[in-house]
Amino acid sequence: MKLKAREVEGIIVLEVKGQMIGGPEAAVLPETIKAEIDKGKKRFVLDLGEVDRMNSTGLGNLIGSLTTIKNAGGELKLANVAEKIQSLLLITKLVTIFESHDTVDKAVRSF
């Protein structure tokens, strides 16, 4: 899993690449989010367009990210959710929790 963070109009866009299946490198997501929150950032978009695989640990990372951001009084929106991940969100009913947009642009503009 690789993570790139950029800022668009004060919103932190986190672009995840590869597999969200846990492991030591998965720690970069919560660490980055925490660092941005410490800098005072509150609005986040998680771009999942390049995520080719996600298991329950990856789903846990997603939930953890949302919890961290919400606890800091912020918001997290998903963008570019691939079909496979969408079906995971459907099964677990997380679709009712995560706000999801087709593109990063739309997600950024929805704040």
């Binding site: 329950s56 990372n61 939930i63 099964i91 677990t92 009913k93 997380l94």
Partner: peptide, 28 residues
């Protein structure tokens, strides 16, 4: 912990009535 969760299917089978009452909490 925040990153952990559980998926569960729980139901009650009424043998006599051949009836299942259930709720699926995010499980396959």
């Amino acid at each position: 912990e925040p990153e952990r969760f559980v998926t569960a299917f729980y139901g009650v089978l009424d043998g006599r009535a051949r009836l299942l009452t259930y709720a699926n909490a995010g499980h396959n």
